[in-house]
Amino acid sequence: MTSTPCLARAGLGEVTASDSSLRRFLHGLPGVDEVAAEARAAMLATRSIKADAKQFALELPIRMIDLTTLEGRDTTGKVATLCAKARQPEPSDPDVPPVAAVCVYPDLVSEARRCLEGSGVKVASVATGFPSGRTSLAVKVHDTMDAIDAGADEVDMVIDRAAFFVGRYRQIFDEIRAVKQACGQLHLKVILETGELATYDNVRRASWLAMLAGADFIKTSTGKVSPAATLPVTLVMLEAVRDFRDATGRQVGVKPAGGIRTAKDAIRYLVLVNETAGPDWLDPAWFRFGASSLLNDLLMQRQRMHTGRYAGPDYFTVD
């Protein structure tokens, strides 16, 4: 009943049966040595990306961006301008591809849908009582259905961190399953809020828990908690999706979100993907950036590569 075919094949069908079986499994995963994981991420950040490789590494992240606005003061007007930017990030250069998705609150999905019609840009909606997730399962599912009914292509849900800390893993598993069921074929991204999980061991366990429950993507952060995405956290999550595919055959995407502002940051994440999970993940279908200001820096660096000069920030649209 709880087992999906790929988990059953991997012999993981039984681990999701209860809190205690989940605990045994998650706590049986190899630990993460904090010092060494951070050293590895820092070493990869020294990779020097030049010439053709740099061009590639400036263009790919544009197509990987979930252009995001998640503020209490978001209006249809704000969403409309963001969608215009998403469709055509650089009005003076039609070669610049659109971003992957626009990410908004559920009540703004219909506006985003309308603005993005025919563009190929997906509408992603946060749901399940974002950002804290402190609502009942019924409300979470309802929240998700609202977003889907309004036309969302992708749903970014949050896990119940309180349940995680008291070891109610099965509750988190059930909630993800229920939301995934509501999503059907739509992409479900599960936000772990790694800034609250605090340790890399917790990040690894939460990653596996979300993947076992059917997440299509695992995502670091809501952007409302500091620290948001970091390189070492993303390293641990990339190791998790790599190992999960080895074990089950199912590939899960990764989305660092929050705090990624510069093209240099984005390039470092791409290197991390390339040398951890591997080139299979170097695709907007498997790796996304949850970001807003990153886009303009990518555009600025890209233009510099083409022209040899920096244009001032006023030459790029602010949306």
Partner: peptide, 9 residues
């Protein structure tokens, strides 16, 4: 997708 690093001498 292949991400080949160009020489960075």
């Amino acid at each position: 997708m292949r991400f080949d690093y160009a020489p960075a001498p």
